[in-house]
Write a protein that binds this DNA or RNA. Structure first.
Length: 213
DNA sequence: GCACCGATCGCCT
DNA sequence: GGCGATCGGTGCT
């Protein structure tokens, strides 16, 4: 993605609607500060927006509110982590203002820091004889990146702040136009009627690290 | 109380 | 391309 410079991601940008934030997050750097002090990081290359009560694919469809989805109801800039398929975690970044239950699902990262540790975390539950993981296998899916960054329910609702276990850094690409972004429908959504067909997924077209090749 | 199923992944065919 | 793993949340009885 070319030369980069880094600064804090502007906090007020989290208050945007999820579809705008989802596009804004492409190219930004997600940072995981481990309890050991080690730092893992990757550039966000694929996102999906979940728009709230009217969005029939969202966990907050029809205004649903429960302990599991409570963080989606809070202000933007916090994590919403959920557990699914009996074994996987997925990370969202809450969008909008308090009372607007929207979020952006982080679907893929291009790993940039701590790749050896990510490989170790990702290999833990795989067969020993399996082929070694390539860089593009580390974070190319919402559950994969949670494994690679040691993200689980303990991180639900944490703010994405500088001193937090999760942080976001504004990465300024050499030229933002270097990213050709593709818009598509969301993955794994059926039974959501017209909402299954809405273009609410975005990914960096040329990236080798997106979830679907 | 209970049955259903998921914002997925990895391995096998 | 297909399927099994694996379990908490959800909604209905």
């Amino acid at each position: 993605m070319g030369n980069t410079s880094t600064r804090r991601f502007p906090q007020e940008d989290f208050a945007q609607p999820a579809d705008r934030l989802a596009q804004r997050l492409l190219g930004q750097t997600l940072v995981r500060n481990l309890p050991t002090g080690e730092r893992l990081a990757g550039r966000i290359v694929e996102t999906e927006a979940y728009l709230g009560p009217e969005d029939q694919a969202a966990h907050t469809r029809n205004g649903h509110r429960s302990p599991r989805v409570e963080s989606m109801w809070g202000p933007g800039g916090h994590a919403y982590v959920y557990f699914t398929y009996g074994m996987h975690h997925c990370l969202n970044i809450v969008a909008g203002r308090a009372g607007e239950p929207q979020a952006v699902l982080i679907r893929a990262l291009e790993p940039t820091e701590g790749l050896d540790e990510m490989r170790r975390l990702r290999s833990a539950k795989r067969k020993p004889e399996a082929k070694p993981l390539r860089d593009r296998d580390l974070c190319s899916g919402p559950a994969k990146l949670c494994q690679a960054l040691a993200i689980d329910l303990a991180l639900d609702s944490v703010p994405l702040a500088g001193d937090s276990p999760l942080a976001l850094e504004h990465t300024q690409p050499k030229s933002y136009q270097d990213h050709d972004v593709t818009t598509a429908t969301r993955i794994g959504i059926d039974r959501a009627g017209e909402w299954a067909h809405k273009p609410l997924r975005w990914y960096v077209t040329a990236s080798a690290h997106v979830s679907v090749r």
